[in-house]
Nucleic acid binder design. Structure first.
Length: 548
RNA sequence: GCGCCCGUAGCUCAGUGGAUGAGAGCGACGGAUUGCGGAUCCGUAGGUCGGGGGUUCGAAUCCUCCCGGGCGCACCA
C-alpha cells in the first residue's frame, strides 16, 4: 500500500522536525487534479494552524527534507499541501508483490487477533424471510467475510425466540390451518399469522396425522408448537441457503431461561440499582443512562419483556469471551438499542463491546406501486421468490450495493427485466474477459502463481495501466474501510470503478501483441486485476465465472 | 411534539471522522467492431450537493435552525 508507505515517510520526517505523531493521524489523499501529484498530504495545514510555523513554511521543510527513492519529486502547493509524485518503480513494486504472492490482501496492515461475533437476521420463526431480512442476511454475511479476510476470528449467530406469546399464536394458527385442511369449521385466531405458508404445513400435518388433534388442549398445543417451530426454522435455513448464507451458530432464547440467566441478569441490574417497581411492573432506569425513557423489564403479570432476555443474551456473549459483539438491526429497533445500551452501561460492560449496525428498510417497488411488508397481514415478497427470480449473485450484489443506513429501493420488475444490464455482470464480465485472454496466451496451461521471472513490468506505462496499478494497490485499504465502517457497499463502489478502468484499458490496448515483452507485462497486470476482482466477488459472495 | 436515519444529475445512488476544478450507473441523444468476448468503449446533454445561518485558510462533508421523507416513541417482538 503506497499510502501507508507515504505515511511512514512523513511520520519519520515529522519526527526529525520534532513533531510526535502517530502514523494514523497523518492524512494522505489522492488529489483529483493530477497536477498535484499522485498523492497529497494536508499535514502541514493541520499542524500549522496550531504550531509555530506557518503551514507553507512547514510544508517546505517537510518536502525538502525527505530523501527517498520512491518519489520523482515532492512539491508544495496552495496553502501548504505537500504533493508527492511517484516514481514508476514504486508502483511496479506493488504490482509485482500482488501478482507474485497471488494474495490481494497481503499488504493489509490489519492483522488482528480480536474476536468478533456478528448477530444478524435473528427473525423469529413465525413467518418466512422477506426482502428486509434478505438485506440484513447479505450485509451480515459480507461483514463476516470482511473481518475473516482481515484475520479476525469471527462467529456468526442467529438468535431466535422459541417460546412465549408469538409461539403460542403460531401454534394456534397452525392448528386452525390443520383443522381447515381437514375440512373442519374452525375459528381463525384473532392475532393469527395470515400467510399461506402455514396452510401448507397444516395440510401436511392433516395428511400425516388425520384427525388426531381434534381439540385444543395441552398436548395439542405442545405438538403444534414443536412442529411449527421445527418447520419454520427449517424453512428459514433453506431460504438462507439459497442466498448462500450459513450461520456458525444458532441460539434459542429458551436456553437463557433454562439456565437461569434471565434471573441472574435481573438481580445484577438490581444490585447495581438499575431498577425500580412501579404499577406492578419492574422498570429499568434507562433514562439515567441516556435512553429517552425508562422501560419495563418485567410486566405486571410477571412475564419479561423481550428486552430482559436480550440483556441476558448479551451477558452471555460477554461471558463467551468475544472482544466485540456486532448486532445488525432494522431501523424499527432504534429504541431497543437505546435501551440495551442503557442496560449494558448499568452492568458495566466495556464501552465498545456492544456494536450496532442499524440498517434502513428495503422498499420494493413493483410497476410504480410500493409494496408494504407486513408478516402479520401476510403480504410480503419473500427472500425465496426474490432469489429464485433473480439469482443469488444479483440479489446479493444489489443488497450489498447501498450504504446500510440508506433506504434501499429495489425495483423488482426492473431488476428482473434488465438483469443483463446489472452492474454485477459488469464486474463478472471483466473477470471473464481476463480469463479468456489467458486461455489464448502462452500461460493457458498456467496453474497457481503467475511466474514473474522474465517479465519486465517497466513495459507498463500507459495512463490506463498506471491507473490500474494504483487502483489495485488500494484494494487492501478498501477492505479495511468496508470492515471498519460496517459498509460492504465500499466494495461495490470500488469494484465498479476497477472494472471500469479495466474495460477502458482493454478497449484501448491489446494485451496479446507481437511484442512478447509488452504482452507479458500486460498479462501480469491482467492477472493482478483478476486476483483482486476474484477476491472482491468472493467477499461479496458473488460468483466469479470464467465464462458467461 | 421528541429521538434515530435519509435528502447529491430526469431515476437509483457513490463521495472513509474536512482539503486544491462536484462523480458513477440507468435513462436521453450521437458515435466506435472484417482485431484478446460489443454483457464493452468514446462523446453530448443534465446538479445554487433540500433551504438559511455559523465555524474555518477551505464545507456535499462539521455545528445550528427550518423544510421534506422513512422509522420509532407499548407492561409487542
Amino acid at each position: 500500500m503506497i499510502k501507508r508507505e507515504i505515511k511512514r515517510v512523513l511520520a519519520k520526517r515529522l519526527e526529525e522536525l520534532n513533531y510526535e505523531l502517530d502514523r494514523d493521524d497523518i492524512d494522505v489523499e489522492e488529489p483529483s487534479n493530477e497536477e498535484f501529484g499522485d498523492f497529497a498530504s494536508n499535514i502541514a495545514l493541520e499542524l500549522g494552524s496550531e504550531g509555530d510555523l506557518p503551514p507553507r513554511e512547514l510544508a517546505n521543510s517537510i518536502a525538502n527534507g525527505i530523501e527517498s527513492e520512491l518519489f520523482s519529486r515532492i512539491t508544495v502547493a496552495g496553502p501548504g499541501f505537500v504533493n508527492f509524485h511517484l516514481k514508476k518503480d514504486f508502483l511496479l513494486k506493488g504490482l509485482s508483490q500482488l501478482v507474485g504472492s497471488s494474495d490481494p490482501l497481503g499488504q493489509s496492515s490489519v492483522n488482528e487477533k480480536e474476536t468478533i461475533q456478528i448477530e444478524f437476521v435473528s427473525s423469529n420463526p413465525t413467518g418466512p424471510l422477506t426482502v428486509g431480512h434478505c438485506r440484513q442476511a447479505v450485509l451480515g454475511d459480507v461483514l463476516a467475510a470482511l473481518y475473516r479476510a482481515l484475520g479476525y476470528e469471527v462467529e456468526t449467530e442467529y438468535y431466535f425466540n422459541d417460546e412465549g406469546r408469538q409461539m403460542d399464536i403460531l401454534a394456534r394458527t397452525l392448528w386452525a390451518r390443520y383443522r381447515q385442511a381437514l375440512g373442519k369449521e374452525v375459528e381463525f385466531p384473532e392475532d393469527g399469522y395470515k400467510g399461506d405458508y402455514l396452510v401448507d404445513i397444516g395440510e401436511d400435518i392433516a395428511s400425516e396425522h388425520g384427525d388426531t388433534y381434534s381439540s385444543w388442549d395441552d398436548e395439542t398445543a405442545d405438538f403444534f408448537k414443536r412442529v411449527g417451530l421445527e418447520e419454520m426454522m427449517a424453512r428459514i435455513k433453506e431460504d438462507l441457503d439459497l442466498l448462500g448464507v450459513q450461520f456458525d451458530s444458532w441460539f434459542r432464547e429458551s436456553k437463557l431461561h433454562e439456565e437461569g440467566k434471565v434471573e441472574e441478569v435481573l438481580s445484577a441490574l438490581d444490585e447495581r440499582d438499575g431498577t425500580y417497581k412501579e404499577d406492578g411492573a419492574l422498570w429499568l432506569k434507562a433514562e439515567e443512562e441516556g435512553a429517552p425513557k425508562d422501560v419495563v423489564l418485567v410486566k405486571s403479570n410477571g412475564d419479561p419483556t423481550y428486552l430482559l432476555p436480550d440483556i441476558a443474551y448479551h451477558l452471555n456473549k460477554l461471558d463467551r469471551g468475544y472482544d466485540r459483539a456486532l448486532v445488525l438491526l432494522g431501523a424499527d429497533h432504534q429504541r431497543h438499542v437505546d435501551n440495551m445500551k442503557a442496560a449494558l452501561r448499568v452492568l458495566g460492560f466495556p464501552g465498545d463491546f456492544y456494536q450496532v449496525l442499524i440498517n434502513q428498510f428495503v422498499s420494493l417497488s413493483n410497476e410504480g406501486e410500493v409494496k408494504r411488508m407486513s408478516t402479520r397481514a401476510g403480504e410480503f415478497v419473500t427472500l425465496k421468490s426474490l432469489v429464485e427470480d433473480l439469482g443469488k449473485d444479483v440479489v446479493r450484489y444489489f443488497m450489498a450495493a447501498r450504504k446500510p443506513e440508506s433506504h434501499l429501493e429495489f425495483d423488482y420488475e426492473l431488476a428482473k427485466k434488465e438483469s443483463m444490464d446489472n452492474p454485477v455482470y459488469y464486474l463478472q464480465y471483466a473477470h471473464t474477459r481476463i480469463a479468456s485472454i489467458f486461455e489464448k496466451s502462452e500461460y493457458a496451461a498456467l496453474e497457481g502463481d503467475f511466474p514473474l521471472e522474465g517479465v519486465d513490468l517497466t513495459e507498463l506505462g500507459e495512463d490506463e495501466e498506471i491507473e490500474l496499478i494504483k487502483k489495485l494497490d488500494k484494494f487492501p485499504e478498501i477492505v479495511e474501510i468496508a470492515a471498519a465502517d460496517y459498509g460492504p457497499h465500499h466494495l461495490v463502489s470500488y469494484g465498479e470503478n476497477l472494472a471500469s478502468i479495466f474495460h477502458q484499458f482493454y478497449n484501448k490496448y491489446k494485451v496479446l501483441t507481437d511484442d512478447e515483452g509488452i504482452s507479458r507485462a500486460r498479462l501480469a497486470l491482467c492477472k493482478g486485476v483478476q486476483l483482486v476482482l476474484k477476491e472482491l466477488l468472493k467477499l461479496l459472495g458473488v460468483s466469479a465465472p470464467k465464462k458467461m
